[in-house]
Design a protein around this nucleic acid. Structure first.
Length: 292
DNA sequence: GTCCAGGTCGCGC
DNA sequence: GCGCGACATGGA
């Protein structure tokens, strides 16, 4: 069966999927030729669904495959909510486009309706993946995510190695030693295990942080309590939550501004930040699309 | 073997 | 508040 989800006027499917690297991380899979984004999704009822998403006219067409039984309306609705979330259909980029107009159009942002960056259905998944990007290379990030998903995710198709992103209960049940021995996450094993444990024990409510009524300061205060999440990760996670006012001051950011604005000479932290001050609540996106 | 990657933690001052 | 070594892993 399939679902049809209406899209806002300003929507660019290809840009939303590929302007950020997340689509290359399991369980996401993107078929560049067919322009189909797919992933295995575990619903809160426990049902495992293979979801394929493509763009048709002013809608997303979502094909759903599952082993047996049927999907209830509630389950269909859960899938729809998740898809709206990962494509940020509720976010408004008009103010960002206005700033681009005022400050300077770059890389076809306005014309191509760029700005949306793909994210994961759950904040747990996004935080795990963010931790997998710290102090390592992108190829290791891909490998760590693959290991995590194939060892702990629920299978949809074993031969094709299609699994859902692991849920927190599974991570806790498998135990920290299992993560350390088999997943090659390095010292991150402890962080991931502790994070899952805190969610299971309801010491931490990540999904609650998705709501706009919570102030960014409150979100930051919560994120700071997560081991393995420092300034760079906080900035990245805030971006994933649709809050773009914090810059990710990491090696890549420093290299970018050094080469583009300071002729290869390292500027001070203050000088770096000032570059994007005029972008106000959209500093992160301004930096992100500042690359060629 | 050594160094380091889109950092962060825990310590000592 | 700041500086510094340690941290798992694999590729250069």
């Amino acid at each position: 069966m399939s679902l049809t989800i209406a899209l806002p006027h300003s929507f660019n499917f290809y840009a939303t999927v590929t302007d950020h690297g997340w689509y290359r991380l399991s369980p996401f899979d993107f078929d560049h030729d067919k322009k189909v984004l797919s992933r295995v999704e575990e619903l809160s009822t426990g049902k495992i669904v293979f979801v394929s998403i493509q763009h048709r006219l002013n809608s997303l067409i979502v094909d759903l495959e599952y082993i047996d039984d049927v999907l209830s309306p509630v389950e269909e609705q859960e899938i729809e909510e998740k898809i709206k979330w990962i494509f940020r259909l509720d976010e408004d980029f008009d103010r960002f486009y206005q700033l681009c107009q005022d400050i300077g159009e770059r890389n076809g942002i306005i014309k191509q309706y760029r700005g949306r960056l793909l994210r994961s259905p759950s904040l747990f998944e996004d935080i795990v993946k963010t931790i997998f990007t710290t102090n390592t290379t992108w190829s290791r990030t891909i490998a760590m995510t693959n290991n995590f998903v194939t060892h702990l995710g629920k299978p949809y198709h074993l031969e094709k190695k299609l699994f859902s992103f692991p849920n927190v209960t599974t991570v806790v049940a498998k135990g920290e030693d299992y993560l350390k021995k088999h997943l090659k996450l390095g010292y991150r094993s402890t962080y991931i295990f502790e994070l899952a444990q805190r969610i299971v024990s309801q010491d931490l409510d990540l999904e609650g942080l998705k709501h706009d009524v919570i102030s960014t300061d409150q979100v930051i205060a919560q994120l700071k309590t997560i081991k393995g999440v420092g300034p760079y990760a906080i900035s990245t996670i805030l971006m994933l939550l649709g809050r773009y006012d914090y810059l990710p001051i990491d090696s890549d950011f420093k290299k970018h501004v050094r080469m583009k604005y300071f002729s290869g000479v390292s500027p001070s932290q203050q000088e770096m930040k000032q570059l994007y001050d005029q972008w106000g609540e959209f500093k992160y996106l301004a930096y992100w699309f500042d690359h060629d």
